[in-house]
Design a protein around this nucleic acid. Structure first.
Length: 511
RNA sequence: GGUCCGUUCGUCUAGGGGUUAGGACACCAGAUUUUCAUUCUGGUAACACGGGUUCGAUUCCCGUACGGACUACCA
């Protein structure tokens, strides 16, 4: 097997889509598994769509999820430069070679002429008009124009493009690693533009030339490229690179969670989940899209989730570290069908990864939130809270979001709990409990529990009946972690103060 | 419209000529828990349809339907 060299080749036209991250991941896994090379190349041949900051964003995103680039943008390498705009001068020679070999030609048609041709064909009943082996005979190109006129036009710097001369009748075959043999008839491929009039190559030429020059062994990319893959095969053939042609693997697309269609930013916005790894501010519109990182997703969890979107190991194991993924991954086990994107699964993975973290790390998450709120808290106390909250957290920010009551006494009490559980018995027990706590010498969870049980049994009221009331008086809510531990953490004085406040501010609704 | 790709529980999927069609998420129920969550146990739920081939098809073949991608001097 030849040396594995794969590439992730995004266009810097905006933030990196989550589907792009998956594509990068699969490339990376293959490279690592075979001790190969992961290359990052930027395909910025369309200068009109260039977005400032996009390239840096892509770099940061890959770094955050733990995909390391061995060669290319940001790290350099033997095939530098890795930005296609900077490789501009390298492409023309190959286009010229194709012309010399009779596989390409100059075309001088203006936009208006092309438009007129399409109109003409449409009115004649052709659904999708193409510049191809038939129509090119009626256009202004080096195949129809006399040689000296072509030279004259070129000498006069007339704008032109170079088009591939696709044969009229030929079966183009391609063995995709995921889909098997894909056959396309050349009559369905149009004479694609290879060099644009601004001197830049199109995707097709640049991609093939760079993959060849960079000795790419596997092209792993989205399914949207499958229709143009036969064209690329033709290009390799005409350029004389058939033996160096990489293997292709076209990944199934990520689909909308509900309904149909390709997953888009719009869907993500509507359903309230991130679509970009990192928060992205669109430099043109100023719109801000919150990223996975900022939403509290852990990079390992996101990677695990993404890896399973279209791939599975064939076993029941679901939690995979990057290392395990590298060992287990295989292109053969990538599915063919499009995958609906389900954010619930991502949340589940996040929860799993969060729980697996050491307590100290969890405590730090809480401490970070507290710092932003300007609240002092010892590491020990934060750890205690984190341990208590662990089982109910999905995101790091949950420790604060669901544990505010540890630091702020409630001033509002959950209505439904109050109306159902706040009654005369509750008031009696809370009053007695509070008085008992005041006199307690040492106070911790055990003392709290013993005290409460003593009070309830003395009064002859079931403990279960008033627990909710006690909880709401201490935390404001009807649900939460172990109450006795909460009391230990907030401390004796706070317990007394909070119960007092609740007693004075909650009216008895039910007798 | 044309070309190409696809179709197993609601979702992600395993499987593959003869299986009680397996797992996970979600959902529901029960148990545990002072509540919620966790945990445990159990449950509902799928081979798109029609023809072949075959003793037998969810699995192979062909159609149909449905879905998706592509159809630019964008990638």
């Amino acid at each position: 097997m030849r040396e594995v060299r794969v590439r992730f080749a995004p266009s810097p036209t905006g933030a990196l889509h989550i589907g792009g991250v998956r594509t990068a991941l699969y490339n990376y896994l293959l490279a690592r598994q075979f001790g190969g090379t992961m290359i990052l190349r930027v395909e910025d041949t369309d200068q009109t769509r260039f977005v400032p900051g996009a390239e840096e964003y892509i770099l940061k995103s890959l770094e955050w999820v733990g995909i390391k680039i061995d060669e290319g943008i940001g790290v350099g390498g033997p095939h530098a430069p890795y930005r296609q705009s900077e490789r501009k001068s390298m492409y023309m020679q190959y286009a010229l070679q194709l012309i010399n070999d009779g596989h390409a030609y100059y075309a001088f048609d203006t936009e208006q002429e092309l438009e007129a041709m399409r109109e003409r064909l449409k009115t004649a009943g052709v659904a999708s008009p193409q510049y191809n082996s038939i129509t090119r005979t009626q256009m202004r190109n080096s195949l129809t124009l006399p040689e000296d006129e072509v030279r004259a036009l070129l000498d006069a710097s007339t704008p032109y493009v170079i088009r591939l001369k696709v044969p009229r009748k030929e079966e183009v075959r391609l063995n995709d690693l995921i889909r098997g043999w894909v056959m396309v008839h050349s009559s369905q491929i149009d004479d694609k533009v290879l060099m644009k009039s601004d001197g830049m190559p199109t995707y097709h030429l640049a991609n093939v030339v760079d993959d060849y020059l960079m000795k790419i062994s596997h092209v792993i990319r989205g399914e949207e490229w499958l229709p143009s893959a036969p064209l690329h095969v033709l290009l390799y053939k005409y350029l004389g690179w058939e033996n160096e042609m990489p293997q292709f693997a076209h990944l199934p697309l990520l689909l909308k969670p509900d309904g149909n269609g390709k997953l888009s930013k719009r869907d993500a916005d509507q359903l309230g989940f991130p679509i970009f790894p990192l928060t992205w501010k669109d430099p043109n519109t100023g719109d801000v899209a919150v990223g996975y990182k900022e939403s509290g997703y852990l990079p390992d969890a996101l990677i695990n989730f993404l890896a399973f979107l279209g791939w599975n190991p064939g076993t029941t194991q679901e939690i995979f570290s990057m290392e395990e993924l590298i060992k287990t991954f295989s292109i053969e086990r990538i599915g063919k069908a499009g995958t609906k994107f389900d954010i619930h699964k991502a949340q589940w993975f996040n929860q799993q990864y969060l729980r697996a973290k050491p307590d100290a790390e969890l405590a730090n998450y809480l401490l970070e939130s507290l710092e932003q709120e300007n609240i002092e808290c010892s590491f020990e106390k934060a750890t205690q809270i984190a341990v208590l909250m662990k089982e109910r957290a999905t995101f790091p920010k949950d420790f604060w979001a669901q544990g505010k009551f540890f630091f702020h006494a409630p001033t509002q009490f959950e209505e439904s709990v109050v109306s159902k559980k706040w009654n005369d018995d509750a008031v009696k027990v809370l009053t007695a409990f509070k008085d008992a706590v005041v006199t307690a010498e040492a106070f911790d969870a055990n003392v709290a529990k013993a005290t409460l049980e003593h009070v309830t049994s003395t009064l002859g009221i079931g403990t279960g009946k008033i627990m909710q009331a006690l909880r709401v008086s201490l935390t404001g809510a009807g649900a939460g972690p172990d109450l006795m531990m909460i009391m230990e953490i907030i401390g004796k004085n706070e317990v007394v103060t909070r119960i007092d406040y609740a007693l004075q501010n909650i009216k008895v609704k039910v007798a």
